[in-house]
Amino acid sequence: MPNFFYELHFYLFGLFAIASALTFVTRKSPVAAALWLVSTMFSLAALYVMMDAHFIGAIQVLVYAGAIMVVFLFVVMLLNLGHPDELSDLRGKWGRLAAGLLGLAILAQVMALSRTRPEASLVQSDFDRLAELRGENAVAAIAKPLFSDHLLAFELTSVLLLVAIVGAVVIGKRRAST
């Protein structure tokens, strides 16, 4: 399948994701930064769809770009942090340097890792994968293992989210009497 048209779009979305992410971390205004993050999420969703993971692509848009970022923007607006120019930047020279070095290290690591191939015997062939997707559909292919093999992990995730909510409420709740 890798024809020129496919490759062109794949790298286009990839570049757009990286460019948006870079713009996201360099913006001073929280609202602008959040919108650039939405654009990163959309590009990633496009990449997922191009890799035949349609369901994950859809969820990416619905959950991250939709729900989470909207709530994020609400919080930014409700907190009313003031004019972006008046915000002090916490990131000093050394912070930037360290972040740059860490970024370079991760880039080098990704380069090195992309040279190694996973064990051939562990990789499911494209043919098998496509057959599986056609036989059922993208949602069933995810739902089946989620509710059978990974049932325990799924249930534990719900407990985890409950604890996160309880923790946030306990810390954030206004005191009844002081």
Partner: peptide, 15 residues
């Protein structure tokens, strides 16, 4: 499961 256990513990302890 290990990761979920670690997070369950950590998030509770953060609070």
């Amino acid at each position: 499961v290990l990761f979920l256990g670690i997070e369950l513990m950590s998030i509770a302890v953060y609070a």
